[in-house]
């Protein structure tokens, strides 16, 4: 039973990582932008849930409202960042890293000024309190909700990329920007939409995180490194890889923690990933083509 409990804990952690990394798999994985403020978009999503609950009151309604609103808030912040700063430095990754890190610090300070430095709580709805009993195992409803949300987000994103005109356009621009432009596709407009969706997913992740504990201005910093790790280990630009890597990281953390401590487990996870990337620098999933383009 212990193993099953650890398995669930790992999957649950994996689903949180996946939510955090899914947006990055677009903005970093597909577009190559190292956006250090991605975590702060999550934080913005979390505070969106806090504000919505303040206005609406009912925890259930506010959660359901906060999910799409968090997406929009995260997305708009991303859009603003892309339009003002990032699009000027698409070929300068180090500059992007520094600038977006600066933006992350600014956003944290804005959150501190607006909401105060101490953490705040967002109440979980009654239908998410308690646990589902399966056998002798108690599975917290909030964790199950986040797991489901992660699956819904992955499926929605995969479908959007695979089966919609917008998805085709995004994939075309990501693969060959010049060819896309020379085929009549506006790469600027596509970049903006891609960044909106990627950042919006961070907002959704932030809303989900409010179910796991109190939230504060530095909420995002706890997840940003892990999220980048997931995308790199999964194989840049591959959603399938991101899903597998997030699940694997969650499970590893959970099982290492079981036999050691949280900190040692973290170190072991890092070491495992470094070793893995030495063996397979392209990550878990890579793409075969006969041409360079």
């Amino acid at each position: 039973m212990d193993i099953i409990a650890q398995l669930f804990a790992g999957l649950s952690l994996g689903s949180v990582l996946l939510l955090a990394a899914l947006g990055l798999s677009l903005t970093f994985g597909q577009m190559g932008v190292i956006n250090m403020a991605h975590g702060e978009f999550m934080m913005a999503g979390a505070y969106t849930a806090f504000v919505v609950q303040g206005v609406v009151g009912d925890a259930g309604v506010s959660l359901l409202l906060a999910l799409p609103l968090g997406f929009v808030v995260g997305g708009l912040l991303g859009l603003l960042l892309e339009a003002t700063l990032i699009h000027r430095m698409y070929r300068r990754p180090l500059d992007t890293l520094l600038v977006t890190w600066g933006v992350a610090l600014v956003l944290q300070q804005v959150a501190r000024d607006v909401f105060g430095a101490p953490n705040v709580d967002v109440r979980a709805p009654a239908w998410l309190s308690g646990a589902v009993q399966i056998g002798g195992l108690a599975l917290p409803r909030t964790r199950l909700f986040i797991l489901t949300l992660a699956i819904v987000c992955v499926v929605a994103l995969a479908l959007a990329l695979r089966a919609t005109p917008l998805g085709r356009r995004i994939r075309a621009v990501v693969q060959n920007r010049d060819l896309a432009e020379a085929s009549g596709i506006s790469s600027r407009a596509t970049d903006r939409v891609t960044f909106f969706i990627g950042s919006g997913l961070a907002g959704v992740a932030g809303v989900a995180l409010t179910l796991l504990g109190s939230i504060g201005p530095t909420l995002g910093t706890n997840y940003i490194v892990d999220a980048f790790l997931v995308v790199v280990a999964g194989g840049i630009g591959q959603i399938k890889g991101t899903v597998i890597a997030a699940t694997a990281l969650g499970l590893m953390q959970s099982f290492f923690e079981y036999s050691t401590t949280a900190s040692v487990a973290k170190v072991l996870v890092f070491v495992t990933i470094v070793a893995f990337l030495q063996l397979r620098p392209q990550g878990l999933v890579s793409v075969r083509t006969r041409s360079l383009a």
Binding site: Q175, I185, A293
Partner: peptide, 18 residues
């Protein structure tokens, strides 16, 4: 040059969409 990870059909569709 092609959009290598898209199918041949999608290579045409992505342009036709517009």
């Amino acid at each position: 040059q092609s959009f290598g990870q898209l199918s041949a059909r999608e290579n045409l569709q992505v342009v036709a969409d517009a």
